[in-house]
Design a protein around this nucleic acid. Structure first.
Length: 276
DNA sequence: TAGGCCATCTGGTCCT
DNA sequence: AGGACCAGATGGCCTA
């Protein structure tokens, strides 16, 4: 939201419903865009769109719209009211989704500022996923290093940090991104995915530290040449000695972690069983 | 001008 | 039955 810039300034991502309603009215009057099918009724009672229709056509239209219910003939006004209500709900839903997306953008290690274009939705999701994976890896790596420092004897391999009560023990939570890496917490192992992603180079260069850059990401965020060599497309396998920070060098290309599907099923139970 | 991204509308499906 | 969720279609805006 706040990170939005020129792009959204001219076209708010979440316009007020009233504005939308007005714009819809204008659209209805001026355009009747193709997206608005013949069933379009998102407009006030005196809908100019319907003026051109014969009574029979209007009736057929009403019947078609009401067919899912009880085939009762609804009045034009009722149909429009229903349609308006449904549209409004959908707008609200999408608005909430955008708000959540903005919230996600805010916590991402990505530049926030007036001169930085907002991440696209797909870029935000991919970046978030990679960020989570990287943080998980950082945690595992940190655990490993601490264990090495404290030796191998005793509880939990000799290490019993004060935060034992708050931090997870050796085994990652099932379904957690780090779970599949638990058996080989080596320095070099998959962290960032594939190729597909390519966001600002500052995006993940320093996990936990919000990258500051005034450089705008490429417009084609996901299609940078050399897929994978890009900022996010590359994995961060060379962990900085002493810093714990991943290395963004181009050598750190890694395959995608194999637990994507399990993650999905955990995060979205409905989708897991969704046969649609 | 083409392509990317987005908002919106719409109908279908699933869930409560 | 009503609402949530989803995907397809479409047009607008913006950038390269």
């Amino acid at each position: 939201m706040d990170s939005d810039t020129s792009r959204v300034s001219s076209r708010p991502s979440s316009p007020e419903v009233d504005d939308l309603f007005l714009s819809t009215l204008k659209k209805s009057v001026h355009g009747f865009s193709g997206a608005v099918s013949s069933t379009q009724s998102d407009s006030p009672p005196d809908n100019p769109l319907l003026r051109g229709l014969s009574a029979a056509e209007e009736e057929a239209l009403a019947l078609r719209m009401a067919s899912k219910k009880d085939r009762k003939l609804l009045s034009e006004n009722e149909l429009q009211a229903i349609r308006l209500k449904i549209n409004s709900r959908e707008r609200k839903r999408m608005h909430d989704l955008n708000v959540a997306m903005d919230g996600l953008r805010e916590v991402m290690p990505y530049a926030h500022g007036p001169s930085v274009r907002k991440l696209s939705k797909i870029a935000t999701l991919l970046l978030a996923r990679n960020y989570i994976l990287m943080l998980s890896n950082s945690l595992e790596e940190m655990k490993r290093l601490v264990s090495e420092i404290y030796g191998s004897g005793g509880h939990h391999g000799g290490f019993h940090p004060a935060a034992c009560g708050t931090m997870t023990h050796a085994g990652p939570v099932p379904g957690h991104p780090a779970a599949s890496h638990a058996s080989h917490p080596a320095v070099h192992h998959p962290l960032l995915p594939p190729a597909a992603v390519s966001v600002s180079s500052a995006s993940l260069s320093a996990p936990g530290i919000s990258a500051v850059t005034s450089v705008r990401p490429h417009h084609g965020l996901l299609k940078a040449p050399g897929a994978g060599a890009g900022p996010l497309g590359g994995g961060f396998q060379h962990w900085g000695v002493g810093t714990g920070m991943p290395c963004p060098c181009s050598m750190c290309q890694v395959p995608p972690p194999p637990h994507v599907s399990s993650m999905s099923s955990v995060a979205m139970p409905r989708l897991a069983g969704d046969s649609k």
